[in-house]
Amino acid sequence: MRPIFDFLEQDTRLASLLRVLLSAICVLVLWQVVSLFVTNRLLLVPPADVAVALFHEIQNGDLWTNAVATVTAVVSSFLVSVAIGIVIGLALASSRLLSLTGGPVLSALNSVPIIALAPLFVAWLGLGFASKFVLVLMVAVFPVVVTTEAGLRAADKPLIEAARSFNATKLQIFTTVTFPYALPFIVSGVRVAWARALVGIVVAEFFGSFAGFGFAILSASQTFDTARVLGYVFVLGAMGLIGSVSFAALERHLAPWRQE
């Protein structure tokens, strides 16, 4: 057994992939075993049933229809919220007055569970794309604002002083010191924003839509089709995981000096 353990503990891509696979297999096996004892299929369905339900959704095209609705809304809204978040963060970091006056409003908004306003957004903007877009925007924008401002303010004083000593202009200090320094901070905010955006889109689709993963989950649970519910949850989980892993990789790529 020892050589296998040694191999799995290695710091290589293959080993980490195998580790992920191994833990996924463990979860699936455990799930399958538990579902042998919990036989009420309303409460728990075995993973094999979930896979079948998901396959069925692919075959009849529902998965595709729902994916198009959800992905277009969540991705477009996510991109816009990252852009807006960076712009607001830049504005807050560049003006002390703005930060002091606007900051409390933003943190108040940030602490309100905006998700709870979903029914209101649907009432204002109707069923469909617009209400989804705005709700996702509202939940995803704040982490980007906060990390952008914090990252820009965190820039190392000695680095700025060195730039000034070499006669750098304000713009050059921003482009060569402050912004590169803030970039990994911003990406970590973007990572949080993506996770929040997924929550936002599902809730928005619960309340007001005729297509999308949230809509599919709601309708499946109303017909007590637990396998279909879990199938869509699995797809959402995969989207979250892919985003999280790739943004974390981007963060490491942008700031390799922080690892050591």
């Binding site: 000695p158 680095l159 000593s165 006669n167 050059q172 010191v177 700031a255």
Partner: peptide, 29 residues
């Protein structure tokens, strides 16, 4: 440009290579 300062530790840009850091003053100019 008639004066240049050598700072204490850690005034190098961590995201730039040695050669880029050495050329930093020149690229700013």
């Amino acid at each position: 440009r008639d004066r240049a300062m050598v700072f204490q530790q850690d005034s190098l840009l961590p995201w730039k290579t040695v050669i880029e850091n050495v050329a930093y003053g020149l690229t700013l100019a």
